[in-house]
Amino acid sequence: MGPTLTHIALHVPDLDACMAFYADFCGLRLIHQRPAKGSRIVWMAEPGREQAFVIVMMPGGTPRNLAADDYSHFGFALPSRDAVDEIAKRAQQAGCLIWSPRDDPFPVGYYCGVRDPAGNYVEFSFGQPLGPGAQPLESDGEWSSP
């Protein structure tokens, strides 16, 4: 067995704001926290995936100033196009929408982009061959287009 991706760790300028964002927009919940040099380090995960993948957040980061055409991001799958539209509407109201909902050819699907309080981009998508309900790869390691 090869390496398995288990977490990503981020220094963030406002730990509480980032925790609130990932809880509210992404449905992550706090699963661990510990003191660290006068502050704390937190682990957040999707319910039911606590032992598969976590986001670790630590205070002390500087805000990221990504360009609008920088597509570096964290990706979250949603169950429908309507769910993408709802996230985009909430993000617009909160002033953090960066990519309005749009359709791109398979395997990208329907998605929007939101900026977290640290300046990271977060994509919310429907129709990608990743996440819950994804179809298995073909025998040649490629996805079959729907």
Rank of each mutant, 00 (worst) to 15 (best):
L10M: 06
P101Y: 09
R102H: 08
F106I: 08
I55Y: 04
V54C: 08
D69V: 09
S125C: 12
Y121R: 14
Y22M: 03
S144Q: 15
N65Q: 15
V56I: 10
L5K: 04
W43N: 03
L15A: 04
N120G: 04
P107V: 01
G131V: 04
V108T: 05
T4I: 15
G141Y: 07
S100N: 03
L66E: 15
P79E: 10
E50P: 08
I8Q: 07
A45V: 05
S125E: 05
P146V: 07
H73T: 02
F124A: 01
P47M: 05
E138R: 12
L30T: 15
I41D: 14
Y110A: 03
A83C: 11
E50W: 03
F53C: 14
N120D: 09
Y121I: 09
P129E: 04
H73I: 04
A134D: 10
Y71H: 08
A94T: 11
L97C: 10
F21D: 01
G27D: 14
A118C: 07
C26T: 06
Q51W: 04
G127I: 01
P107K: 10
D69K: 02
R64P: 01
I41K: 12
H7M: 11
F124G: 00
F53K: 08
F53E: 10
W143F: 14
F21T: 01
S145K: 12
R81Q: 13
G119A: 03
L66W: 05
I31M: 05
L10G: 02
P132F: 14
L15I: 08
M57N: 10
S39P: 09
P132L: 06
P105R: 06
W99P: 02
T6H: 12
A68P: 14
C96L: 01
A17M: 07
P35Q: 04
G119Y: 01
G127C: 00
V42C: 14
P13H: 12
Y71D: 11
P146H: 15
F53G: 08
T6I: 12
C96P: 02
P129M: 03
I98Y: 01
P117I: 10
R81L: 04
F126G: 00
D104M: 13
F124Q: 00
Q92K: 13
E142M: 13
P79N: 10
P79C: 05
A17K: 13
I31C: 13
T62I: 08
G38T: 08
P101M: 06
D16K: 14
E142Y: 06
Q92P: 02
C26M: 05
G131R: 04
R40W: 00
V12H: 02
I8M: 07
Y22W: 12
G133L: 13
Y22D: 02
A67I: 06
Y121A: 09
G60R: 04
R115E: 08
A88I: 15
A17S: 14
K37C: 11
A88W: 10
A88R: 09
W43K: 03
L10W: 13
V12N: 02
A88E: 10
D103C: 00
S139V: 02
D85M: 02
P132H: 10
L28W: 08
P136V: 15
H32R: 11
Q33K: 14
G48C: 11
A36S: 15
Q92Y: 10
I55G: 00
F106T: 11
V84Y: 04
A36R: 14
D70K: 02
Q33N: 11
F74A: 15
S125A: 14
L97V: 03
R40L: 07
K37Y: 06
G127A: 07
